[in-house]
Amino acid sequence: MKKLVLFLNKIVFFLNSFAATMLLLAYVLPYVEPKKFAFLSVLSLSVPFLIILNILFLIYWLLQVKKQLLLSLIILFVGFIFLSPLYKFSSSKNIEDENNIKVMNYNVRLFNVFKWIKEENVDQKIVDFINEKQPDILSIQEYRRDEDINLSGYEKFEVISGQKVKNGQAIFSKFPIINSGSIEFPNSFNNAIYVDIVKNKDTIRVYNVHLQSMKIDANADALKNETSENLYRRVSKTFTMQQLQAEQFLEHKSKCPYKMIICGDFNNTAYSYVYKEIKGDLQDAFVEAGNAFGRTYDIRFFPVRIDFLLVDDAFEVNSFKTFDVVLSDHYPIMAKVKLK
């Protein structure tokens, strides 16, 4: 029996070593350009899983009081700075202030036009939810223009494309919009749009960024039909395109003279190169004021955060919330920010 336990522990430690090595390698991914090392970039999608896996190995060795626990413990400690974008142990920050600006980001998945969710009136339920929360600024990805979609009390800027279904991005604002525009990404239906709004005497630039999607169906049956070669090729190409799109966006952003809010669906995690580059010195509202996993994309049993709200140092982040509303494959997120 003792030999069997020793043999089992050797196998577990081998798997533990592999998971720890992959996690350590993943820590450097935000500093590696996808177009140079596309294979490594794929690992960024697995960082939440690798962190959780190493925690489970740590618990396994801890229960046995084995020194092997040091492997995952050290790796997790080294990457502690990477853990906060995955899970916030503190409770959500929520400071009410009359000067708060409520900013919501929501990928609405075309308001369920193709009936992915087998439920009646999903489009109206999305509108009702937004009207209930009354964000001051609303950033929407996969938006479509429809006469039945009525969000009243807002100024709006939208960029719509496509033939079969007219869709794109939109920004709604309760503050006056004095300027607007679009950053068109080449060879892609994705783009970034922006508006300049005026609150009191301050001009604020609001970006809505939608980076290239991998177009991978998270459904288990659909994934079974994907060969590993096709999956790898698609993900590698997407990450390379995301980098080029992020570089184009950053060039535009660098010329902006105003205080800034960046919303969007980056189609990549907080452990990716594009997130690191776009975030730069900005504040991630989830990291500043959120709690728990901050999950924004609907993959069963797996916490994935690919939707972000970023603000510059001109703002204080007074709250952040992810709403558990299943009306899209994304969850809406909202932050309350205040100009200092």
Rank of each mutant, 00 (worst) to 15 (best):
F89G: 08
I75R: 01
V65R: 15
M334C: 04
V78D: 02
T240C: 14
T238E: 05
H210N: 11
D324V: 00
N167L: 13
K255P: 02
L151A: 01
F114Q: 12
V5K: 13
V274R: 04
Y271H: 14
P176A: 10
M334H: 06
A192L: 07
E155I: 00
D123M: 06
N16D: 07
K67P: 00
N105W: 04
A246H: 02
L15V: 11
Y27I: 04
N107C: 08
Q124S: 13
Y297K: 04
S72Y: 04
H210C: 11
A270R: 04
L86H: 05
P176G: 06
L4A: 13
L6W: 10
I306Y: 06
E158R: 08
G153S: 06
S272M: 03
Y143A: 01
Y275L: 01
D329L: 12
N318Q: 09
Y106C: 05
E247D: 15
I11S: 11
S182F: 08
K156Q: 13
L53H: 05
N179P: 00
I204K: 03
M260L: 15
V198Q: 10
A289L: 06
P85Q: 03
D281Q: 10
Q64F: 14
S91V: 12
L83P: 02
K340S: 02
Y232S: 14
S84Q: 04
I204V: 09
D312V: 01
E277C: 04
V103C: 09
F129V: 08
D128H: 12
Q245W: 05
V209P: 07
S254D: 10
K336N: 15
F111W: 06
R144E: 09
S46I: 10
E132M: 12
A335Q: 02
K35E: 15
N225G: 00
A246M: 12
V165W: 14
I177W: 02
V206W: 06
A19Y: 01
L86R: 00
M214P: 03
N191W: 03
V326Q: 11
A270G: 07
V165K: 13
N112K: 07
Q68E: 14
N208D: 14
K67Y: 14
I171T: 05
K118L: 09
D136C: 03
N179G: 09
L83H: 05
V274D: 08
F39P: 12
I177Y: 00
K199N: 13
T21M: 14
K102V: 07
K36M: 09
R109V: 00
I261H: 01
R233Y: 12
L76P: 01
F37C: 05
D281R: 08
A292F: 15
F189Y: 11
G153Q: 09
K259T: 08
F323P: 07
Y297M: 11
P48A: 05
I171Y: 00
S41Q: 09
Q141I: 01
N54E: 06
V103L: 12
